[in-house]
Write a protein that binds this DNA or RNA. Structure first.
Lengths: 210, 210
DNA sequence: CCTCTAGGTATACATGTGTCTACCCGTTGA
DNA sequence: TCAACGGGTAGACACATGTATACCTAGAGG
């Protein structure tokens, strides 16, 4: 584990290229991969046992990448609103720079291979947990149970992932998508902050605005 | 348009069966379909020009189904919380009864075929608009702009769709998923209702609970 | 009664696929 | 110097795929 030697890396990168051009990881053929990588089909077997193992390796290659990306995200932000803005900006830029990884993640999270699905879920849940801990440590929201914060984090991570697809392939809509995402996050947390109020109390609050 | 004759229907249903057993619509082969349907491969060409057209027809077959399902949903519920509960219960039961349709929708919404993607988006947006109108007409939330209600509806429809996958294939988690979904919806709307408050006002509200 | 047609079938072809076995070549270590 | 070995190649295998052409049959319409 695990310096990637030439051929192996070439195959993985070929997969990422093919996926960006509208394929799904599970549907790639090994000859297709070799062709794209400029290698002999049989070279595949020098590095991977079969396509399942290949899929897993591509995934962990991506995961490595994503993790290091998201780690950088320890920013200084005072309010949760500011943090939401910073996070969303950062994450979408990251996704934009790594379209293949994003596409793989979105497609395989609900894709046909249970193996890849579980792997991705674990990966996402880990990120969500980190995000939750971060919010708690930095006390970005008040009066909300940790349990709820983690729940919201999980939802948010998934939401962002899916929107990232739109963000990538609809350049004209990027600003709108970013703003929607921020509103989404803020509403979740604001909603959680007033979860203990009755509907009547809420209604008066809502009606009293000008 | 469009009484489905024997063979055509058999092919579409074969597709739905195959998809439930962990395939994706785009990845189906016509021989595979014919085999599953108990027909000669060439019969496919009597009914469809190619696999793309087939995909679209499967989609509209499903759409028909879903639409009629969701239409039944005009229930009587007094509070938005109650409506959320009723809706979520109904929708998840519907998805549970139609796993193939659900799987197709989830897989192809971010799948490799732009054609199917657009078709599905339109379908979902239509449902979201209906949901939004319904909420507005029945005045289930107060003090929230129609624009915001529609935005939340769109997010909710997509959220539910993805969770439906988990709901279907994790029987032990169904109650939890349903509750999470309800909390998700309520937080969105509650969050929207207090969107006009400042953070300081919110913090006092949140800290004052016991 | 004949003809047309919709739906289903059979055969065949070129191309693609995963996998196996065998061969090759440069580096490394003894 | 020689053996082992990691990484790459070549050819061949059985089988799957999309598609084209031709044939068959049951029913409908005149």
């Amino acid at each position: 584990m695990s310096v990637l030697t030439g051929g192996k890396l070439k195959l993985i990168q070929a997969a990422l290229r093919l996926i960006t051009q509208s394929r799904s990881l599970t549907s790639l053929g090994l000859r297709e991969l070799a062709r794209e990588a400029g290698l002999n089909p049989n070279t595949f077997y020098r590095h991977f046992q079969n396509l399942d193992e290949f899929g897993l390796q591509v995934l962990s290659y991506i995961a490595e990448d994503m993790k290091s990306g998201v780690r950088e995200l320890r920013r200084t932000a005072e309010t949760s609103e500011q943090a939401a803005h910073d996070t969303v900006t950062f994450v979408y830029h990251y996704f934009l720079a790594n379209p293949a990884a994003t596409t793989v993640a979105v497609r395989e999270l609900h894709g046909p291979s249970p193996l890849l699905r579980r792997a991705l879920e674990n990966q996402l849940d880990a990120s969500a947990r980190e995000m939750g801990e971060d919010i708690i440590d930095r006390q970005l929201v008040s009066g909300v149970e940790p349990r709820t914060i983690h729940e919201i984090s999980t939802m948010t991570i998934r939401y962002i992932l899916f929107r990232a697809m739109d963000y990538i392939d609809q350049p004209a809509q990027r600003e709108r998508i970013q703003l929607e995402t921020e509103r989404f996050i803020n509403r979740q947390f604001r909603g959680a902050m007033v979860e203990h109020l009755t509907r009547a109390e809420l209604d008066t609050l809502a009606d009293n605005k000008q």
